[in-house]
Amino acid sequence: MTAENLTTVPHVDRPPPLPARWTQARILGTTLLCLWAAAGLGLIYFLVRSWNPDLLHRYAPNYLSGLWVTIQLVVISIIIGALLSIPIACGRMSKNRIWSGLAYGYVYFFRGTPLLAQTFLVYYGLGSFRHQLDAIGLWTFFRDAWYCALFAFSLNTAAYQAEILRGAIESVGKGQWEAAKALGLSRIQALRKIILPQALIVALRPYGNEIILMIKGSAIVAIITVYDLMGETRRAYSRTFDFQTYIWAAIIYLAIVEALRNIVDWIERRITRHLQR
């Protein structure tokens, strides 16, 4: 379009004003905020009204030990998962049909089925193979619900982490590999010095999300007799029938997840300073 064409356009409505002082939105927003505030105040009122020092005295140590179990479970399975994810990610990117097929199948299975079903399969399913497991000396491991949960969670998170790793490595441009090669770096050197530093920036946020998902997902171990934070909550609730036991758990989980998200944000801001414009 040239300037002459523009002048021939007959008449155009003025664009609507930008939503600077759009009172309707403000009313709606304020109403919603008030509702949130009311919910928050209601919650505080509920907790104050049902404040019970005995209950706190009796169950606070349980909650702490439950929290510790949750943290242990998540940290250890994330680490094992990270180690397992490396060969799987390599398999996914491999040109070898069998390798990549196996890795793909693994990832698809663990990402396509619920963690709860996987945990049941490991805990109750393997429980019915007690004698076979005993024979190969693995029963002492699978006897314990905690180890079963750790096993299922590690395999599960390995699948997700492998995809994160693969996605991050593939997000780095091909030119980077070529440039590294041109400089005479070996493949391993290129991966370590050129590709991974860039890939990890991309992977940071998905990794953070994966940890958060694991913390939330770990609540299901309560169903297979592990006394994590959720397990202790259910135990306290089954004794007291006091709903505040669940509210406390909700507050603790929310606090952890929010803290973690803020930490990831902070790290991301720091390591991407050179990219900011």
């Binding site: 919603l32 509702l35 949130w36 009311a38 919910a39 209601g42 919650l43 509210i247 909700a250």
Partner: peptide, 8 residues
């Protein structure tokens, strides 16, 4: 827990 949207 009373949460605005959810209650509705």
């Amino acid at each position: 827990m009373g949460i605005s949207r959810r209650i509705v």
